[in-house]
């Protein structure tokens, strides 16, 4: 679908994508293999404390795996300032399980620490924070709608420092109901913040029901474009190749006087059949039996924590 879009857009772009796809085909398999392990981490973490947000976490597993294991240029040693490396900000902090899993699997901290999620004296708070010094996290999030402003600030800091790297952020679609986002969207568009790639987890679900029912976002693509953003839309945002493709194109569109948004259509609860296509698992943990069922659908590929 995305390639089709490019075909229509330009032949040159299509060739570029084809060449690129060829070189990364061998990586895709590795990334795909990691995804079920991340899902297992998410499920076991929320089950372990009978709380947390599995739905959105599962829906973004592919995105996080691609971002951290393929897209971002980040250094081995974590530093808060992140000079000359790509940065990531999670605005919808409640999907912390997927964030923690991917950070741990990427070596930011010991994988065994995932077992402390939401427990007392843990660095893995219910919502991510810098407060306990967890490597990989640069801002606290959880109270929704604040992450885009922070990401823009980091973009401005990079520009002042002559740092060419890119700032990535992730936002829930329901989260866009928070007004601060629109202040930030207006700012980034008006002030040409063009080292920013913001992804919207467009799963169309929120706690109380479908986003359409709770408070419709309308035509999000048109809205963002009218705020002077470049917008890409990915119909199947749970497909690793699609995410790689859109990220590569988006990267090439940076430094062109416009911020970039990716509307990533995902399925909440993806990878666990009974959690998919519903908002029921937005903020609910599986019981023992449900966990067993969910884990049976996802192979242990890298060893459970």
């Amino acid at each position: 679908m995305f390639i089709n879009f490019l075909k229509k857009k330009s032949t040159q772009g299509y060739n570029l994508i084809q060449n690129f796809t060829f070189t990364i085909v061998k990586n895709i398999k590795k990334l795909e293999e990691l995804v079920p392990q991340v899902r297992r981490d998410i499920l076991r973490m929320v089950h372990g404390v009978n709380s947390g947000h599995p739905g959105g976490s599962l829906g973004c597993a592919e995105f996080f795996v691609v971002l951290f294991f393929h897209v971002m240029n980040s250094k081995n040693q974590f530093s808060m300032d992140g000079e000359h490396e790509d940065l990531f900000f999670l605005s919808n902090g409640h999907i912390s399980p997927v964030y923690y899993s991917v950070l741990a699997r990427n070596g930011f901290f010991e994988i065994s620490e995932l077992s402390t999620f939401r427990k007392i004296n843990s660095r893995l708070q219910g919502h991510p924070t810098t407060h306990e010094g967890l490597p990989g996290v640069r801002i606290s999030s959880g109270s929704l709608g604040q992450g885009l402003s922070v990401a823009i600030g980091a973009c401005l800091s990079k520009k002042l420092n002559g740092d060419k790297s890119i700032v990535y952020s992730l936002h829930g679609d329901g989260e866009l109901q928070e007004g601060q986002n629109w202040e930030a969207i207006m700012y980034a568009g008006s002030k040409k913040v063009d080292n920013l790639i913001s992804t919207i987890d467009y799963n169309k679900q929120q706690i109380d029901g479908s986003t359409e029912d709770v408070l419709s976002l309308g035509n999000l693509k048109k809205k963002l474009e009218s705020f002077n953003w470049i917008v890409f839309e990915v119909d199947d945002g749970n497909n690793i190749s699609n995410i790689i493709e859109v990220m590569d194109i988006a990267k090439k569109e940076t430094k062109k006087q416009k911020p970039i948004a990716i509307l990533l259509h995902t399925i909440m609860g993806n990878g666990v059949d009974f959690m998919m296509h519903t908002h029921a698992w937005h903020g609910k943990a599986p019981n023992d039996e449900e966990l067993k069922n969910a884990l049976s659908q996802n192979k242990e590929t890298h060893g459970d924590y």
Partner: peptide
Amino acid sequence: AEANMMGIAAGLTIGG
């Protein structure tokens, strides 16, 4: 847009 200002300020600290 004061809310945005506070967030941007927080982000600017990242990078010194």
